[in-house]
């Protein structure tokens, strides 16, 4: 296996206000191979969006800052690029689509203006060429009557259609990596499924890698090859999607999985959300960030922070207890019976 398309090493991102320093991303490492689709899951506030904005070097400044790490993309550390070089990567090599299609498009510019802009900027097309290409892109993402819609404004599209426009915008310059930050969260369930199918089809056509952020493990099961689980600014587990579902090694992942409704379950068990709240990121605990909520934590867990370790081939977990799912279940039974 050659060099991955994207390799993030020890990335740390903080937000500094007059009162406190919030560590939004605590030295995380991960990689994404060419053609691979990776899901990033985790509760709200776990640092999913910030870690992706960091890859784009778009962390809101001056409060937010990348303080450590390297972001290798096609052999270059993105953190070493000058602003002009970085702009040439954004939208061209790495594209990003956002959670809220209602606010991600400029309300006073037509859809055509949106689409033409990056095509002229990155691919050097003329306005006429760019308009032709824009219509093709809209057709590709399934906008009916695309040719007549270039002059329409964002408010004339439904939420699902706007997200399709955002996808067309993201794919306009054939990026090698598409980062999708909860692109379906704001949409109806049926529209969600359509958007996911669309991305599945397009990533094959474009041969690109995809990073798909979500806080719903259930949605992405059929979409992603590998999953990165984030908790309180850390990557706590990463594995292929099958390994993760079948053999979760981190207690937090197990908790997330048991919060997914299972259609095939013999009896419809009640969802069991993980009790408690994530730690305060301006004052993180000394030990494992999950220990205060973990049903299995020991004295060690509270005093010493575990590192992300390979627990099986290609399967990493940040936990002192090298437990398997079976062990979790029997441990839980012991406690319940006690």
């Amino acid at each position: 296996m050659g060099e991955p398309l994207l390799r993030v090493e020890g990335l740390r991102t903080i937000f500094q206000t007059s009162k406190q320093v919030v560590t939004a991303v605590s030295g995380i490492s991960y990689s994404v191979d060419a053609g691979e689709t990776v899901g990033i899951v985790g509760e709200s506030g776990s640092g999913k969006s910030v870690s992706m904005l960091a890859v784009m070097r778009l962390v809101p400044s001056p409060a937010g800052r990348i303080t450590e790490g390297r972001i290798w993309f096609q052999g270059r550390n993105l953190l070493d690029l000058n602003p002009a070089e970085m702009r040439a990567v954004r939208g061209k090599d790495i594209a990003m689509i956002f959670q809220d299609p209602m606010t991600s498009l400029n309300p006073v510019l037509s859809i055509g203006k949106h689409l033409v802009e990056p095509l002229k900027l990155h691919l050097g097309l003329t306005t006429t060429q760019a308009k032709t290409r824009a219509v093709e892109l809209l057709q590709m993402v399934g906008i009916p009557d695309a040719a007549n819609r270039l002059n329409d404004y964002p408010h004339q599209f439904s939420g699902g259609m706007r997200q399709r426009v955002m996808i067309a915008l993201g794919l306009s310059c054939n990026p090698k990596l598409l980062i999708a930050d909860e692109p379906t969260t704001a949409l109806d369930v049926t529209i969600q499924a359509q958007i996911i199918d669309l991305v599945k089809r397009l990533r094959r056509e474009f041969g690109m890698s995809v990073i798909w952020i979500t806080h719903d493990l259930g949605i992405v099961a059929g979409l992603v090859d590998r999953v990165i689980v984030m908790y309180a600014s850390h990557v706590v587990e990463t594995a292929s999607v099958d390994d993760l579902y079948e053999d979760p090694r981190h207690p937090y992942t197990l908790g997330l999985l048991s919060a997914i409704p299972r259609l095939d379950a013999a009896e419809r068990t009640r969802l069991t959300p993980i009790p408690g709240k994530p730690p305060d990121l301006s004052n993180p605990p000394k030990g494992c960030p999950f220990a205060p909520r973990c049903g299995f934590s020991t004295a060690d867990c509270l005093s010493e922070k575990p590192t992300l370790r390979e627990v099986a081939p290609g399967h990493f977990s940040m936990c002192h207890l090298e437990l398997s799912k079976q062990a979790f279940i029997s441990l839980r039974e012991v406690r319940v019976n006690a």
Binding site: L53, M56, L58, P60, R87, A88, V89, R90, G91, K92, A95, M96, F98, D100, T103, S104, L105, N106, P107, L109, E117, P118, L121, H122, M166, L169
Partner: peptide
Amino acid sequence: DKNYVTAARARGLSEQATLLGH
């Protein structure tokens, strides 16, 4: 501060184009 500005920057627009054009 709005999302469409972040989105425009994410498409590689310069600060000037983001400000004046958007």
